[in-house]
Simulated assay, not measured.
Amino acid sequence: MDAETLINYDLAKKVPDMISRGFTIETAYGEIVVWPSEAEPFATLVKAMLERQRQELHR
C-alpha cells in the first residue's frame, strides 16, 4: 500500500478506535494506558499530525 492509503486508513479506522476503545502508548520503559474517557485530546493530535503528513505527500 502507498503512504496516502495507509494514512487514510489510519484516519478512518485507527483514530476513531482510539476514542472508542482507548489505547496503549508503548515506550522503552513500559506502557501507558489511555482510557477511552481520556483519549479524545490524543486522538485530535494524531488526526492533525496524519492530515499534515497527507498534505506533505502532495507537495
Results as ranks from 00 to 15, higher is better:
residue 15 V to T: 04
residue 20 S to K: 15
residue 45 L to K: 13
residue 13 K to I: 12
residue 48 A to C: 05
residue 47 K to F: 03
residue 28 A to V: 02
residue 23 F to I: 03
residue 34 V to K: 12
residue 40 E to A: 12
residue 11 L to Y: 04
residue 13 K to D: 05
residue 37 S to R: 07
residue 19 I to G: 01
residue 43 A to W: 01
residue 6 L to Q: 03
residue 23 F to E: 01
residue 42 F to P: 02
residue 16 P to R: 00
residue 58 H to L: 04
residue 17 D to Q: 15
residue 32 I to Y: 15
residue 57 L to I: 14
residue 22 G to C: 04
residue 28 A to R: 06
residue 45 L to W: 08
residue 13 K to G: 00
residue 56 E to T: 07
residue 31 E to Y: 08
residue 40 E to D: 12
residue 16 P to I: 07
residue 14 K to Y: 05
residue 16 P to Q: 02
residue 45 L to V: 06
residue 24 T to N: 06
residue 51 E to R: 04
residue 40 E to K: 11
residue 33 V to A: 15
residue 29 Y to P: 00
residue 48 A to L: 13
residue 57 L to K: 04
residue 7 I to A: 05
residue 40 E to Y: 07
residue 10 D to L: 10
residue 42 F to T: 11
residue 26 E to C: 10
residue 7 I to T: 14
residue 41 P to I: 12
residue 48 A to I: 06
residue 21 R to S: 10
residue 45 L to F: 09
residue 41 P to K: 01
residue 52 R to I: 10
residue 40 E to L: 11
residue 10 D to H: 04
residue 3 A to W: 10
residue 37 S to K: 09
residue 12 A to W: 08
residue 9 Y to L: 09
residue 54 R to E: 02
residue 55 Q to M: 11
residue 39 A to K: 05
residue 26 E to P: 10
residue 11 L to Q: 00
residue 33 V to D: 15
residue 59 R to T: 14
residue 45 L to I: 06
residue 10 D to F: 05
residue 35 W to S: 12
residue 8 N to S: 11
residue 21 R to E: 15
residue 18 M to S: 02
residue 35 W to I: 15
residue 23 F to K: 01
residue 19 I to M: 00
residue 39 A to C: 10
residue 37 S to D: 15
residue 19 I to D: 01
residue 41 P to L: 07
residue 56 E to S: 09
residue 6 L to V: 09
residue 27 T to L: 03
residue 20 S to A: 13
residue 28 A to F: 06
residue 36 P to T: 00
residue 23 F to C: 08
residue 24 T to K: 13
residue 35 W to Q: 15
residue 58 H to V: 14
residue 37 S to C: 11
residue 12 A to E: 01
residue 50 L to Q: 00
residue 13 K to N: 11
residue 7 I to M: 03
residue 32 I to D: 00
residue 19 I to E: 04
residue 27 T to K: 08
residue 4 E to A: 15
residue 32 I to Q: 14
residue 25 I to D: 07
residue 32 I to T: 07
residue 55 Q to P: 00
residue 41 P to D: 05
residue 24 T to H: 09
residue 51 E to P: 03
residue 8 N to W: 06
residue 58 H to S: 06
residue 20 S to T: 13
residue 56 E to N: 14
residue 31 E to S: 15
residue 11 L to E: 07
residue 36 P to A: 02
residue 45 L to G: 06
residue 47 K to Q: 14
residue 45 L to P: 05
residue 24 T to V: 06
residue 16 P to V: 12
residue 59 R to I: 03
residue 50 L to M: 01
residue 52 R to H: 11
residue 55 Q to R: 11
residue 21 R to D: 14
residue 48 A to K: 13
residue 58 H to M: 08
residue 56 E to A: 10
residue 12 A to P: 07
residue 43 A to V: 03
residue 22 G to Q: 02
residue 20 S to N: 03
residue 2 D to E: 05
residue 59 R to S: 12
residue 26 E to M: 13
residue 10 D to T: 02
residue 10 D to A: 10
residue 35 W to H: 13
residue 34 V to S: 03
residue 41 P to W: 07
residue 59 R to K: 14
residue 49 M to F: 09
residue 39 A to W: 04
